[in-house]
């Protein structure tokens, strides 16, 4: 039973990884790509790791899988935040269809 739930979770994670990468290809500018890819790939990989934990149980590798999940959830949003700030400071433009840019107005 645990195996079945684990494999279902791994499949869901694989599908979300793939959708995140499709977003990386289709969306129009760096910030939108960052959003889609960070959300989908982070939670997809967490789902894969949780399925792995259910399949192999609380052995030596299972504990390391828990540690890996915690590190991933803590570090991935911080990395995306750093990339967004750096790219805005280096002058990467928003997409033409964007509505407003309060950050550029305040930093004149």
């Amino acid at each position: 039973m645990n195996d079945l739930i684990g494999f279902i979770l791994i499949s869901i994670g694989l599908v979300f990884d793939l959708l995140g990468c499709v977003g990386l290809v289709r969306l129009p500018d760096a910030y939108n790509r960052l959003q889609a890819a960070t959300k989908c790939v982070t939670m997809g990989t967490c789902s894969i790791l949780f399925g792995t934990l259910l399949v192999i149980g609380f052995t030596a590798a299972g504990m390391k899988v828990i540690l890996c999940m915690i590190f991933l959830i803590l570090t991935s949003p911080v990395a995306s935040h750093a990339i967004a700030r750096g790219s805005h400071k280096s002058g990467v433009k928003l997409w033409e269809g964007s509505v407003c840019d309060a950050y550029a107005e305040d930093n004149k």
């Binding site: 990386l24 890819a37 792995t52 899988v65 890996c68 990395a79």
Partner: peptide
């Protein structure tokens, strides 16, 4: 731009962790 390349590198790095987990099973 360079930002797009760095985003893609970051995402590639996260996906390798999932590959490691699947190889473990």
């Amino acid at each position: 731009t360079g930002a797009d390349r760095i985003v893609a590198l970051d995402i590639l790095g996260i996906m390798i962790v999932g590959l490691c987990a699947i190889l473990t099973i």
